[in-house]
C-alpha cells in the first residue's frame, strides 16, 4: 500500500526563494548589496554587506554594473538595512564616521592603519600626508600613505579628502582636486584662506605659546592680534612655542 501521508508530505518540499541565496551571500560578506545615497558632492553608490560598508563610488564616475569590480564580489541592488543606513546617513551629515562599521578585507594592515587614522581627522580640518605617516608609526612612509589613500574604497565616509600636501596645497584626489575642494568647503573649511603655498604651515597663539595646524579647532579660535604664523616647526620652536597636543603638528 502506498503511504498517502508520506507522499503528501513530500509534496511540501519547495524551492527556496531566490532572495534567500542573495541575502545569505550579502550577510556573510561573500557578496555586496548596494544602494544610492546622497553626499555633499552628489549621489553615490554605497556598497555594503554583513560586515559593514565596503565601498563608496560617486554616481557618474563608474557604471552601476562595475561596482562588483571595485569590491571584487558580486553586487546586488537593494535597500541598505535600516540600522546601517541610519549610521551612514548620520556620518554623511556630520562628517564623522566612527559609528559606521567598514568591511576593509583585502587591504593591508598598513592601508587599514592609514584609513583608521584618517577617519580621526575632524570635519573641516586637514592634515598633511606626513602627519598620517608619523601618527601610525611609519614617519618615512609618506608616499605609501598617499598610495593607500588613493585606493581608499570608501571615500567621503573615510575622509581621505582631509589629507593634503605639507606645502599647504590641496593635492590629488581620486575624483579630481575640484571635488576635494568642494568637500572641504562643504565641511566649513576656508580653503582660500588657509590652503595654498602663500599661507603659513603653522599658526601659533601669542598668549599660550602653542602652535597648531592652521585648520586645528584651537588655531581657529586665536584672536587676530595674538595670531602668529610660522613656515616651519624650527621657526616656531625658536620663537619659544610648543606643538599643540590635540592636532600634533609635529
Amino acid at each position: 500500500m502506498i503511504d498517502t501521508v508520506a507522499v503528501a508530505l513530500e509534496g511540501l518540499r519547495f524551492e527556496a526563494p531566490e532572495e534567500l541565496f542573495t541575502s545569505v551571500m550579502i550577510e556573510t560578506g561573500l557578496a555586496d548589496g548596494y544602494a544610492s545615497m546622497r553626499t555633499s558632492i552628489g549621489d553615490a553608490w554605497v556598497a555594503f554587506n554583513g560586515l559593514g560598508v565596503s565601498a563608496l563610488v560617486p554616481v557618474g564616475t563608474i557604471d552601476e554594473m562595475e561596482l562588483g569590480d571595485v569590491t571584487r564580489r558580486p553586487a546586488h541592488s537593494r535597500p541598505m538595512p535600516e540600522p546601517l543606513a541610519d549610521r551612514v546617513e548620520e556620518a554623511l551629515r556630520s562628517g564623522r564616521s566612527q559609528r559606521v562599521p567598514f568591511d576593509l578585507r583585502g587591504l593591508s594592515d598598513f592601508a587599514r592603519a592609514v584609513l583608521a587614522k584618517t577617519a580621526e581627522i575632524p570635519p573641516g580640518q586637514v592634515r598633511p600626508y606626513g602627519w598620517v605617516a608619523r601618527e601610525i608609526g611609519h614617519p618615512a612612509a609618506v608616499r605609501a600613505v598617499g598610495t593607500a589613500l588613493a585606493r581608499n574604497p570608501v571615500p567621503i565616509l573615510i575622509p581621505c579628502h582631509r589629507v593634503v600636501r605639507s606645502d599647504n596645497t590641496v593635492g590629488q584626489y581620486a575624483f579630481g582636486p575640484d571635488r576635494k575642494v568642494r568637500l572641504l568647503e562643504a565641511e566649513g573649511l576656508d580653503v582660500g584662506g588657509i590652503m595654498g603655498r602663500q599661507h603659513a604651515r603653522f599658526v601659533g597663539s601669542g598668549t599660550t605659546r602653542i602652535f597648531c595646524h592652521p585648520s586645528c579647532a584651537r588655531a581657529r579660535r586665536i584672536r587676530p592680534e595674538y595670531r602668529h604664523e610660522f613656515d616651519s616647526e624650527a621657526e616656531a620652536f625658536e620663537a619659544g612655542y610648543r606643538p599643540c597636543r590635540i592636532c600634533r603638528p609635529i
Partner: peptide
C-alpha cells in the same frame, strides 16, 4: 565553496 553549500541545501532547509 560555501555558495555551493547554500545552493545544495537551501531547498531542503527552507522547506
Amino acid at each position: 565553496a560555501y555558495p555551493e553549500v547554500v545552493r545544495a541545501l537551501q531547498g531542503q532547509v527552507f522547506s
